[in-house]
């Protein structure tokens, strides 16, 4: 079942100096429980698409149809932690805004991500990877229906990146949430996503959508060992033209 239908989305940014077509003719449907990855050249309009989906920006044209009232969890590209709040207070920001009381889940997440002993620490004393995990917990804390993740693991080192993406994947699948994730990492996209949308450069239009059908679909780390993994890797690699 589709929980989100996007039809002919178009976004033009208007500034005093010029107008800029960031996204054009973008249509796709998100199924319930589906994990979609978006890859594309840098600056093409990926973040713009996520902002429009969760209602922060208005599309210039096009329609987004939600099948019910959806609660979006948007993890922005930069961590945006508040320097004046400690880790714990940062994590419960969304809960406080929504005036929700249940903090148990946050505590559990802090423990799972090895941040429990840092709950009273202030962000300036955290490493880049820890900051990103705090930002992720803050997003998960409100228990949203759809997760919009904008390069969620970019600040993590390779090891942590694999481990955290494994965890996030499990959480998303366990709670049957849908997710749209922007990433630059082809391997990450293949190992996590059910479908991968490849975008063109300025404006972002859909170049290709790949259905990822691995032989033994499992968790991200296992998926990387799948026989068809490298097949998809080559396919995508050739499709994303990167002119260095």
């Amino acid at each position: 079942m589709n929980i989100l239908k996007i039809k002919n989305l178009k976004k033009t940014y208007h500034t005093k100096e010029s107008e800029f077509l960031a996204v054009d003719n973008f249509s796709f449907n998100l199924k319930e429980g589906e994990f979609v990855a978006i890859v594309g050249p840098s600056g093409c309009g990926k973040s713009t698409i996520l902002s429009i989906l969760c209602g922060l920006d208005k599309p210039s044209k096009g329609q987004i149809i939600y099948n019910k009232k959806l609660d979006f969890g948007y993890m922005l590209q930069s961590d945006n932690l508040f320097d004046w709040l400690n880790v714990y207070k940062n994590c419960i920001l969304g809960l406080e805004i929504k005036k929700r009381k249940n903090k148990k889940y946050v505590e559990k997440l802090l423990k799972t991500y090895g941040l429990w002993e840092f709950k009273d620490t202030y962000p300036r004393n955290l490493s880049g990877g820890m900051r990103q995990r705090v930002s992720l917990i803050r997003t998960l804390a409100t228990n949203p229906d759809i997760l919009l993740l904008d390069e969620p693991f970019s600040a993590l080192d390779y090891q942590t990146r694999l481990a955290v993406s494994e965890d996030v994947y499990k959480i998303i699948k366990k709670e049957n949430k849908s997710a749209i994730m922007v990433t630059h990492d082809i391997g990450e996209a293949i190992s996590m996503a059910d479908r991968i949308i490849v975008l063109t450069d300025k404006p972002s239009t859909i170049k290709n959508i790949y259905e990822i059908n691995l032989i033994n679909k499992s968790t991200p780390i296992e998926n990387r060992k799948d026989k068809k993994f490298s097949y998809y890797y080559d396919l995508l690699w050739k499709d994303i033209d990167c002119h260095v």
Binding site: L56, G94, I97
Partner: peptide, 11 residues
Amino acid sequence: NKIRLMQSFKA
């Protein structure tokens, strides 16, 4: 971006 973060929580 921090304002957008707040808005994403419907603040």
